[in-house]
Computed example of a mutant assay.
Amino acid sequence: MLQRASWRLAVLMGANSRTYKFALGQALLEFGRTGQEEVLFAEFAAAYSLGMVRHLAQDPRAPHPVELGEKDFLTVADQESAVTLDAGRPTERLLAAAVRSMPMMVMQKFHNLRGDSAVPTPSMS
């Protein structure tokens, strides 16, 4: 029950203001359904990237007030979305951008709530 409530808190009340959490959540659920206990980071980044471009195709993001440049993951996702969707897998450029950005952005922010708090998690002891 706590896991479901924690998941709901992260998705609905997460402090991040961009769309990363939807693609991350989708990738986590995708691998969770397979029962895999370990996933290679590149394999996870590929699922995350594909989820991101699919999400952006359905629900385009609002314009960002500051141009973030060619190294920004969402900028690359926008630029690589057509080729990625046609191929059914992320381009090498998009995958590289995901691998570069995931540890610093979404993996650090997914569980944070507004007001400098984090989603409660059960003890692993």
Results as ranks from 00 to 15, higher is better:
M1E: 11
M1S: 15
L2P: 14
Q3Y: 01
A5D: 13
S6A: 15
W7M: 07
A10P: 07
A10C: 11
A10Y: 02
V11T: 12
V11E: 08
L12R: 14
G14R: 05
G14S: 01
A15W: 00
N16Y: 09
S17I: 06
S17G: 15
T19D: 05
T19S: 12
T19C: 01
F22I: 08
A23R: 04
A23E: 03
A23W: 03
A23F: 03
A23S: 14
G25A: 13
Q26W: 13
Q26C: 10
A27H: 05
L28Y: 05
E30K: 15
T34Q: 14
T34C: 06
Q36F: 00
Q36G: 08
Q36I: 00
Q36L: 13
Q36N: 06
L40Q: 11
L40V: 07
F41M: 14
E43T: 13
E43Q: 15
E43R: 11
A45Q: 02
A46P: 03
A46L: 03
A46D: 05
L50P: 06
V53W: 07
A57E: 15
A57Q: 12
D59E: 11
P60T: 06
R61L: 08
A62Y: 06
A62K: 11
A62H: 04
P63V: 06
H64R: 12
H64V: 13
H64P: 01
P65K: 08
P65H: 09
E67R: 15
E67N: 15
L68I: 12
G69S: 12
E70K: 10
K71A: 14
D72S: 08
F73S: 02
T75I: 02
T75D: 10
V76S: 06
V76W: 01
Q79H: 08
E80M: 11
E80Q: 14
S81T: 02
V83P: 00
T84P: 03
T84C: 13
L85A: 04
G88F: 05
P90M: 03
T91W: 01
R93A: 11
V99I: 13
S101R: 09
V106D: 10
K109C: 08
F110V: 02
F110S: 04
H111A: 12
H111L: 14
L113K: 00
L113S: 04
L113H: 04
G115K: 07
V119G: 10
P120R: 15
T121C: 04
T121Q: 14
P122Q: 12
M124P: 07
S125E: 13
